[in-house]
Design a binder for these strands. Structure first.
Lengths: 202, 202, 202, 202
DNA sequence: AATGAATGAGGATTCATTCAT
DNA sequence: CATGAATGAATCCTCATTCAT
């Protein structure tokens, strides 16, 4: 697979720069320079910038869904749930609070006309939502959460806090608000769980 | 005040376009065309694009802080608190879920170097956070919230959900996730309040 | 009108280059270099290449219709009719047989999508056709041409020979074919006229 | 002949696209896409774009000269002469008046430097001119045309009207002008013939 | 004969900014 | 306060050509 190396180098440079600056603020030349590749190859592999953005979104989804990133998207135990918000906060710290969710950042830069790209973003958001929802459903089924608990709504709640927290952190260059929000969320989820069984950890 | 008319027209066009497309995707010419003004006047009033962005942020803060917008930023009663999330959801519906928080949108487009502009964004975020925090403090002081309640954290929690919910809505073109998240947040806040007094509304 | 000087310089350079090479083979940079103008002004005045082509067609129509060119488009007497074909042949000789009709050349380079530009070309062709048709009608009315003569058809006949002759001349770098065709056309028209009055010149 | 299939597919795609859009407006990639072939094969067979254009001109000449096209280039009888203009008009109708003579179109896009390619175009034009000239000579020899008739000039006259008519039709998207011109040409030629013998058809 | 990766020049367009009037 | 011409860098994209396999 030697020949695809160039393609991957371009995608990885694009992810890095899009994540830092957004799509609109990143020029193709910048990506080519950072990846050490040429203009013709860019067209050859991606046709145009939107093509690269799409490839970037797909690639990002793949590496996140296969667990090759620091942030925890998949949750199976209460212990992992406990770490869920924290992994995003830790990520932010590791990048000096200068970034947000890569897919949210890219999505935020899409115009109304780029519906194909937005589909890709939505696909990812649905996946991450469903990962959490599945966990809440599992705990509901297992009696750890009360029958009144709504797994989907809880998942949306967590995702909203995560996205909002990431954005606030990036804007403020400070994780305080995110930490506060995450703490309240954890208290709430814990309170639901304690309804079922008051002795557990979260 | 004839002379400031041009300036205001420019700012209002800029707010509209920045809100829709972000700062980077909006050209000065587009703003001039939409406001029916000329290039020389732009330089005269704002010197350059950053100057316009700053003026835009200040103007936005002013109209929001003086209550000239549909969304409810200031909360004095539990009834208003109840409407807080809803007003943002209603706003999204009114714009076909195509926008997010104007200041968040602008802030998201700032580069690391535009620290003066980011200061402006942070100033606004702090204000909106403090508006909520003041309310929670007031209720804590009045015994409506328990001594363990953290007004600042609760405010950050609400702001994070609002920003995250707005972003998710814009990305998905659908308020479902935001509504779910807001509902969980209301349940949580209500649960805190019920700790103090179980009979109230929220 | 100092300020429009740049615009005119661009148009004149464009006419020259389009006429020589066609529209597709002429780059904007080439036009800017030849006219000694800048890229920004190009956008300012014409928005894009199609805008320049349109301005070029309009300008060409104007100078031709106001008689500021060597070729004779307007015919009022049989003497002028006699010179009609010759003026195009002479023009070709003056440019080493390297050009054709400027408007035909531009029109030939238009794609199916550029219907607005084609309208402009058609407008000119109709005008030039009508100039001839008016002459033939006048002669028919005056009894110089027989009642069976069709002024419109004769005009189309002349225009077709002119366009075809110009093209053949450019392709062959030689006016022989054009001269032959023009001679036959003159013989035909003369024969029509002789029907009415055998003593005149053409 | 499996191996030449690719070459022929490329040439035929090129003819089609060059005829539609001209040479300059057609990219090699477009030809490869339409013919379902690859870049390496292109170089292998034609070396570069000019090589393809040349092969295209030769191929076009061959299929026209061997009578594999709808348009009638070869004339042996007055009946065929009668159909000569009409076959070009019919062709235009069949392509919605969106094309012109393929070789004229290609020739028109050649630059001053592509003299080898222009030679190829001239070779074809001479052939088609000579086809007509031979017919007129034959009729002159046979007494159908008067001694004063000039076969070469008559041929150039017909070719000019055909090329001009095709161009006008493409520009106007309408065969009216071409039909008018062709009708006048037929009247003229008929008048010559009637000089010799007044009873024949054309 | 075939595939498609790689290169890099050039071309169209956008755009922030400066300047003359 | 107002208009809009002028500048030139930068951006996105196209494309002919070369090369490795």
């Amino acid at each position: 697979m030697k020949k695809t190396q160039t393609r991957i180098k371009m995608i990885e440079a694009a992810i890095d720069l899009f994540h830092q600056q957004g799509v609109n603020a990143t020029s193709i030349d910048e990506i080519l320079a950072q990846s050490g590749t040429g203009k013709g190859q860019f067209t050859h592999f991606f046709k145009n910038k939107d093509g690269l953005v799409k490839a970037t979104l797909i690639y990002l989804s793949e590496i996140i869904q296969s667990g090759q990133v620091a942030t925890v998207y998949q949750v199976k135990t209460w212990q992992e749930m406990d770490l869920w918000f924290q992994s995003f906060i830790d990520f932010q710290r590791s990048v000096n609070c200068e970034r947000s969710c890569p897919i949210g950042t890219i999505g935020n830069d899409l115009s109304s006309k780029q519906s194909e790209l937005r589909e890709e973003v939505i696909r990812f958001l649905s996946w991450s939502r469903n990962e959490l929802a599945r966990f809440f459903q599992q705990e509901k089924d297992g009696g750890e959460l009360p029958p009144s608990a709504k797994p989907d709504a809880l998942a949306d709640f967590c995702i909203a806090i995560m996205q909002g927290g990431m954005l606030l952190t990036k804007l403020k260059r400070d994780t305080d608000a995110f930490e506060n929000a995450a703490e309240q969320a954890r208290i709430y989820i814990k309170s639901l769980r304690m309804t079922g069984d008051k002795g557990r950890s979260l």
